[in-house]
């Protein structure tokens, strides 16, 4: 062997050594994946949980979207899945086919905010107007603001929105257009919400929708629109109070974690979920989402314990926001 090859082998060995300066006993592991919207909350909980446990329990959190998360969950690869919408019928069937039972636990509220450029004079919008903008029929047809409402300024309408894989896209199309995934497609779509923020911030004629956290983080360079409720009345802004009181309709939604039934028999998974529900009120607000009402968290905690004890899940827990 030439010295160089020996040197190469040595460096490989060295890197092997460096790769593991951690203690060697293998540990309890909680696997979580799913929605990028729920990710910041779960990340915060996982961080605190591992600190509290002095890193004796491992938690991994991935981001493969609500749909991707459910696919893995229903194959039994995950203990918990982050979801920004309830599970669909197809996904339920997939889970049932592989014998996986689960419990849905609402952990926070999010509001899809509709924003425009800071110099745009418009300050509120109705659901009907949003539908006129985003419906598939508007594709390549509705290109200027006055086409939506004659009182709107004469500006070109430039649209930004989340990519079609995101739960936000599904939720928005369902709430506004009436059918999930029905949307015009001639808009700038990106999975990276920062790109949407940057796009809207620099263009007075632009309009975008995305999760509340991105608006709260960039409030100084965006203008948020009040949403006139479907039955009419005063426009409602996506403030924490409005969202929590259920006044911001129909764009407020629940964020969930789904817990795998078999996994919940493992103490580390149980403890993690209990910790999640106990710390949620404070951590959810810290990552700029809207916590549920305290009484609601108590209900969810109770439902989880009931389920662990072998009881049937109360249907209301999964369904109600």
């Amino acid at each position: 062997m030439s010295p160089a090859i020996r040197c190469g082998c040595l460096s490989v060995l060295l890197s092997l050594l460096v790769a593991g300066c951690a203690p060697s006993e293998s540990r309890a592991l909680v696997r979580i994946d799913g929605s990028s919207t729920v990710y910041p909350i779960t990340e915060a909980v996982a961080e605190e949980f591992q600190k509290a446990r002095e890193r004796r329990t491992w938690v991994t959190v991935g981001v493969s979207g609500t749909g991707g998360g459910f696919r893995k969950f229903c194959r039994g690869e995950l203990d918990i899945v982050d979801a920004s919408r309830p599970i669909t019928a197809t996904e339920t069937a997939a889970c049932r086919a592989s014998g996986i039972d689960y419990l849905a636990l609402p952990v926070a509220l999010d509001a899809l905010t509709v924003v425009v450029g800071p110099r745009n004079p418009v300050s509120s919008i109705t659901i009907a107007e949003l539908r006129r903008i985003w419906a598939p029929e508007a594709h390549a047809q509705v290109l200027r603001w006055p086409q939506v409402n004659p009182h709107f300024p004469d500006l070109p309408l430039k649209l930004y929105g989340p990519g079609t894989d995101s739960g936000s896209f599904e939720y928005f199309t369902e709430a506004i257009v009436g059918r999930a995934r029905a949307s015009r497609s001639d808009y700038t779509a990106s999975e990276d919400d920062n790109l949407l923020v940057t796009g809207v911030a620099s263009d007075p004629g632009a309009l975008a929708y995305f999760g509340l956290a991105y608006y709260r983080e960039n409030a100084h360079r965006l203008k948020v629109l009040g949403i006139v409720p479907p039955e009419g009345g005063e426009p409602v802004l996506p403030s924490v109070d409005n969202v929590r009181a259920g006044r911001y309709r129909p764009l407020a939604r629940s964020l969930y974690i789904y817990v795998n039934g078999r996994a919940s028999t493992r103490p580390e998974v149980r403890d993690f979920v209990r910790y999640y529900l106990a710390r949620a009120p404070e951590l959810v607000d810290e990552v700029r989402y809207v916590p549920l009402a305290e009484a609601r968290y108590a209900e969810v905690r109770e439902a989880f314990e009931h389920w662990l004890a072998g009881g049937r899940p109360a249907a209301a827990v999964g369904e109600r926001g």
Partner: peptide
């Protein structure tokens, strides 16, 4: 994305 431990 979130891993707060080292491999064994």
């Amino acid at each position: 994305t979130f891993v707060a431990f080292l491999p064994p």
